[in-house]
């Protein structure tokens, strides 16, 4: 039976936490694509009805700010993983 000393276990946990922080940031792809898609649709809407441009821009910016929160979650998780080891 293989047994690990406490230092080995500590090392493995630290390494796994650092790797996990890196993988957590992959979630940043999602908001980027989604916000760009929203901007494209807003541009189309402005071209179709230029009168409503104020409302369209406000709605687009609010939607993007809300979509941003997923990226901030992954950032928070990554920072927690880095600084608790």
């Amino acid at each position: 039976m293989v047994q690990f000393s406490p230092e080995v276990i500590d090392t493995i946990i630290k390494a796994a936490a650092l790797l996990g922080a890196g993988f957590a940031m992959i979630a940043g792809i999602g908001p980027g694509v989604g916000q760009g898609y929203a901007a494209g649709k807003a541009v189309e809407a402005v071209a179709r009805d230029p009168e409503a441009r104020g409302n369209v821009i406000t709605t687009m910016l609010l939607g993007q700010a809300v979509a941003e929160s997923t990226g901030i979650y992954s950032l928070v998780i990554a920072i927690v993983l880095i600084f608790t080891i």
Binding site: G22, M25, I26, A39
Partner: peptide
């Protein structure tokens, strides 16, 4: 981990291009 984290920089590029 750092190398994997940088992959996320791809997303805004795709979205802005769209």
């Amino acid at each position: 981990g750092a190398g994997v984290a940088v992959i996320a920089g791809m997303g805004p590029g795709i979205g802005m291009g769209l």
